[in-house]
Design a protein around this nucleic acid. Structure first.
Lengths: 235, 235
DNA sequence: CAAAGATATGGCACTGAGTGCCATCAAATA
DNA sequence: TATTTGATGGCACTCAGTGCCATATCTTTG
């Protein structure tokens, strides 16, 4: 609210604080670095640090706030004709793209978050906001659907999990390969599961152990499975 | 590690600290209550608080550590013949049962976690440990499977999301109704998605875009999927 | 029973994150 | 030039969390 919304003029102080912080975090570790160390290296007053970052942890994730805003705008620009799951996967793709823009920075930060418990917890709160944004979107899109909110919550969690799977794999590799391709593959895995369409199921009546399913060849297999299961009413 | 494993003799000091803490949290709020307030009401030394609870937030979730241990044991006691997803849903059920044991306490805590950001973040870290435990289990069970780790991560996230959906719904209602039944219903929703079984396929011939699948309920799914995909040639 | 040790607790001082308040400096504006 | 506005620095304060040590209680051992 306080920062200049879409204005791209970034104050140099913010960047110098980030640079100083990461330099110290990487050489002595996060917990061994105090805010006083950071501000003295950056040559600014201690009070200014907390003007730009609400907490010491925030300096580690300087770009997530912007990315979250981008995701919100992306979903708000959705048309009713869009497949909700496709749209949500596109939103998750935005996050991966942000990581991919600065591979070395992302990898360094990953090392930090793996070692420091407090940073991992903070990252969880960030991920939760992404998941909540996706879930809210799906909830409105599936408002009329049976079990719409349950479906929305589960699907949002699945999308986030698939994204994080691809992201962590890429980060562990040190930033090698194409993270966008990886995340697309992982997202397709869940998208096919949660946006079934074009399947008609007709349970048999005479024989109670036989089911007839009619579908198009072009339909991904997962949708068929999902629909058959739903119509069967499983064990 | 340090606490008495299965020994049920709980020190009274721990309980009195929890009681004092919640009394103050509910009347003045979490952030308006200092640790000094808690210990002076409980009549113990300040240092003792941090002997029983690593942080001020931990006193709000006094039973999760035990529950996590229970879940780990439950999964370790799994047999190879168990359906992994069924087992994981049973593990999630344990958590719901813990909440259901103290409805009023759970509802009061829910009110707190909704208002206080720090507590919500802490809860996320707890949920993450549950999800990681479930994911680790599924990963080993699906080690030989194609995309086993991706599948495990996504399925674990889906199970946790379904559990939380039912849990939050029950908590918002003030603890009315049967939370176990609710969570079973939500879990069944994802279980059916991620451990389908019993289909046999036979491709049609006349219409080139329509496929008829006939199957027995008791047939393992995965062979069938491969057969159908092989006969169809997937997208 | 007495001495010695282990465990639980309290007290105290210290570090470090985060906040409120005010002074100061620079740039924009009248 | 005088004034206002916004950004910054400095200072003191609260509070969570930790390390260290003294003390009390309980247990083991001679």
């Amino acid at each position: 609210m306080g920062t200049a919304s879409t204005n791209s003029t970034k104050p140099p102080m913010r960047d110098s604080l980030i640079a100083a912080a990461f330099q110290l975090f990487l050489e002595r570790g996060y917990e061994q670095t105090t805010v006083d160390d950071i501000v003295s290296l950056a040559g600014v007053g201690r009070r200014s640090f907390f003007r730009y970052f609400p907490s010491k942890e925030d300096v580690v994730f300087p770009d997530h706030e912007q990315c979250l805003a981008d995701m919100t705008r992306f979903l708000a620009a959705s048309a009713d004709s869009d497949d909700p799951m496709v749209r949500v996967c596109g939103a998750a793709r935005l996050v991966m793209r942000m990581y991919a823009e600065n591979p070395t920075f992302s990898v360094q930060r990953y090392r930090l978050t793996r070692e420091v418990t407090g940073l991992r917890t903070y990252e969880l709160s960030v991920v939760w906001r992404y998941e909540k944004t996706l879930g809210d979107y799906l909830r409105t899109r599936w408002a009329d659907r049976k079990d719409g909110t349950l479906r929305a919550n589960v699907a949002a969690a699945a999308v986030v999990a698939a994204h994080n799977h691809a992201l962590r794999h890429w980060l562990r590799s040190g930033g090698e390969g194409d993270p966008l391709a990886e995340v697309d593959r992982a997202l397709e895995f869940v998208r096919a599961t949660w946006s079934p369409d074009a399947v008609v199921a007709a349970p048999a009546e005479e024989s109670e152990d036989v089911v007839v399913v009619i579908t198009k060849r072009s339909t991904p297999m997962w949708r068929v499975v999902r629909e058959v299961e739903a119509s069967l009413g499983d064990d």
